[in-house]
């Protein structure tokens, strides 16, 4: 994958599978996902709703709800396998070594606690602050994320701040303990494009400063294109393609990746040039899930597509899970 030379990836996910036990049956939400993120690098997980992007993040963080179980695989944070780590130990890793920011920051913050105190809480728990300097360090953290007049803003409650401001507070909380890995789950959905640019700049600056690796979860292929070094495309709990950003966008090999690109309004010159991806996600309950979960929507389907398949390298650093991939133009 991405280990260039001797650089150890911050996170290495191997064959991670997750199933949810529901009244309607067992939903195989993730099936043998694998990827790695290097220090300072941003890896984007891209796909439509229901593709398993967020479940991947929650599984890594150990935050799956009770019905969800990791049924196999590993997620190595350095030498630690997060899948095998007991919950108490995981709670210490969360916030200190891995942090997460969410969509809709105002809902993720405590509505009845001033934002400065919320940052101080994290600094006390994970950041090695003492009760004497926590307040000052919280104000310092607010200044670091570019909030003007931080001493006054520290006393503000989330409802008094704009969405962009709240997301900056979330970032301040997330990076307070200088984590090795930041998981950003749709961090700018619902924000204005101008605010989105500022928030993403901030995440990048933090990553450059501390060597933090970032997993960017987004449905916006253009945002991933602009902000990530590598993109992994997910569909119905499978990872279908993974490559560096330029290669993936210029020479997509998986039909679903090509479909997503053709459906993104950014590139299209006219409405007629836009193509939708027909069909929907297959039912992920029970035993007879198709080997290729995209086969039902695919125009390039062959008889071979019923055979089990996995993500294979078609070129160095370019992995595709498809029996009949698109021609590489290179």
């Amino acid at each position: 994958m991405t280990q260039s030379g001797t650089i150890q990836p911050v996170l290495r996910v191997q064959d991670l599978s997750v199933a949810f036990h529901t009244r309607g049956g067992v939903v195989h939400a993730l099936d043998r996902i694998g990827f790695a993120v290097a220090p300072g690098q941003t890896m984007a997980l891209v796909g439509e709703s229901g593709s398993g992007k967020s479940v991947t993040a929650y599984a890594i963080m150990g935050l799956l709800e009770a019905a969800g179980k990791i049924t196999g695989g590993h997620a190595f944070l350095g030498e630690t396998d997060l899948v095998a780590t007991p919950p108490a130990e995981l709670a210490r890793i969360r916030g200190r070594r891995i942090a997460m920011i969410f969509q809709n920051p105002r809902a993720a913050l405590n509505p009845i606690r001033a934002v400065g105190r919320q940052i101080a809480d994290v600094l006390l728990r994970h950041g090695g602050a003492t009760r004497f300097n926590a307040h000052d360090r919280a104000i310092e953290a607010l200044r670091a994320v570019g909030i003007p007049d931080p001493a006054r803003r520290a006393k503000a409650y989330p409802f008094e701040l704009s969405g962009g401001m709240c997301q900056r507070v979330m970032i301040a909380i997330a990076v307070a303990a200088r984590p090795q890995l930041l998981i950003a789950d749709e961090p700018t959905t619902g924000l204005d494009v101008t605010t989105q640019a500022v928030v993403m700049d901030l995440i990048r600056a933090m990553a450059e400063e501390t060597g933090m690796a970032t997993i960017l979860i987004t449905h916006d292929l253009a945002l991933a294109a602009e902000r990530a070094e590598r993109i992994a495309v997910m569909h119905a709990g499978h990872m279908v393609e993974e490559a560096d950003t330029a290669t993936l966008l210029a020479h997509p090999r998986h039909p679903y990746t090509a479909g997503l690109i053709a459906a993104t309004p950014t590139a299209a010159g006219s409405l007629d040039a836009l193509r939708s991806v027909p069909g929907g996600l297959p039912d992920l309950r029970g035993k007879d899930i198709p080997a290729c979960r995209y086969a039902g929507r695919c125009e390039r389907r062959l008889d071979a597509c019923a055979q089990p398949l996995s993500l294979r390298d078609h070129a160095p650093n370019h992995a595709v899970a498809c029996w009949n991939p698109l021609e590489s133009a290179a």
Partner: peptide
Amino acid sequence: RSLVAAVPRLDGLRSDIPRLNGD
């Protein structure tokens, strides 16, 4: 100009127009 420049592009190129800071 700033609004248009802030829109992510698929080619990953970013314009050098300054960001709109503040509210």
